[in-house]
């Protein structure tokens, strides 16, 4: 397309390209790359909050103690497991809810635009407002859920949904607080999955479905053999993104439970190490270990999507 243009134009475009993009890159470097370098330094050294005024004036003493302590601590492994469970359940849950919504709203009907917009409300809501509402909803004294349960479902005592670590339901131990926090995050994040899936569904050509119908495929077969395969790539991407985001969640869990009821996720651990225990090095080490898990996961995804691309 541009073969006819003289090379000077090419050189000028190269120069202006860099000129325009450099402010953005500089900010990205300043706010992402530099902090990342620093978190590595902190993770491998003994720094506490009280040392902040002297930072940069004294040489760094390197040590592996932060990682050694993390690996030896029960709190770290407990938090890691809680976080994996939380992020995994949230990813699957929000994909499932998003998929049901996207399929239900796929065909046009009167008021579809409005319904679609209203379904986005939980995603747009400030997380603090959402958490306040949910905490009220689940409050043992005056919350709707407990009041309803006691009035109509014959509950003997109110259930502390946000503070109960585990309850026996038909002989099976159920992690109540963790599931509530997962449900909250699914509620807040399913609309985004719904949007992505809807966008993908809209680009499935109608002819394929018509051809399938002519060949005698029923609705379930159309869904199973035409629509779902088309959604596989975006579904995998959504699972990965939601897992990555939920893996780092702080707000939702902290606002609902402050880590009570065995909902101490990694982000809360980092916060506790930093603020409560005033240990910068340890907080940085926890953060680095978190990113290590995510990097492994991303690498897995890349390998998986490569392989899927090579297939038929």
């Amino acid at each position: 397309m541009t073969a006819a243009r003289p090379t000077t134009t090419r050189a000028r475009e190269n120069r202006t390209g860099w000129l325009l993009v450099s402010p953005s890159l500089m900010v990205v470097a300043l706010v992402v790359l530099v902090p990342f370098a620093l978190v590595v330094v902190f993770g491998f050294s003994e720094v506490r909050l009280v040392d902040i005024p002297y930072l940069g004036t004294e040489p760094v003493t390197w040590s592996l103690d932060n990682f050694r302590r993390a690996a030896a601590s029960q709190a770290f492994w407990g938090a890691l497991w809680t976080t994996v469970l939380y992020a995994g359940l949230t990813a699957v849950g929000s994909l499932a809810v998003g998929l049901v919504l996207a399929l239900a709203l796929r065909r046009p009907f009167r008021g579809r635009g409005l319904v679609r917009a209203l379904l986005l409300v939980p995603y747009v809501l400030p997380v603090v407002a959402a958490a306040t509402i949910w905490k009220t909803l689940l409050n043992p004294q005056y919350g709707l859920v407990n009041a309803f349960g006691r009035a109509y479902l014959g509950w003997d005592a109110p259930v502390g949904f946000l503070s109960t670590t585990s309850a026996d339901v038909g002989g099976v131990p159920v992690p109540v607080a963790l599931l509530v926090v997962v449900l909250f995050d699914v509620w807040k994040s399913a609309p985004l999955a719904f949007l992505f899936l809807t966008a993908r569904l809209q680009s499935v050509p109608g002819e394929i479905e018509e051809a399938a119908a002519l060949d005698g495929a029923n609705r379930r077969q159309t869904l199973r053999f035409i629509l779902l395969p088309q959604l596989r790539a975006v579904a995998l991407l959504l699972l990965l993104l939601r897992f990555i985001w939920s893996f780092q969640t702080f707000d939702d869990v902290y606002l609902l439970t402050e880590g009570a009821g065995s909902t101490q996720v990694m982000a809360i651990q980092v916060y506790t190490e930093l603020v409560t225990r005033a240990d910068i090095g340890s907080a940085a080490a926890f953060g680095l270990l978190m990113s290590l898990v995510l990097v492994v996961l991303l690498a897995g995804y890349v390998v998986l999507s490569r392989r899927a691309g090579e297939g038929p």
């Binding site: 990342f36 620093l38 978190v39 902040i52 005024p53 930072l55 940069g56 916060y271 930093l274 953060g287």
Partner: peptide, 16 residues
């Protein structure tokens, strides 16, 4: 790749 991981150094630098 946003995240909590960078919160620690950002907090420290801005505190400094």
């Amino acid at each position: 790749f946003p995240g909590i991981v960078l919160a620690v150094p950002k907090f420290v630098v801005l505190a400094r």
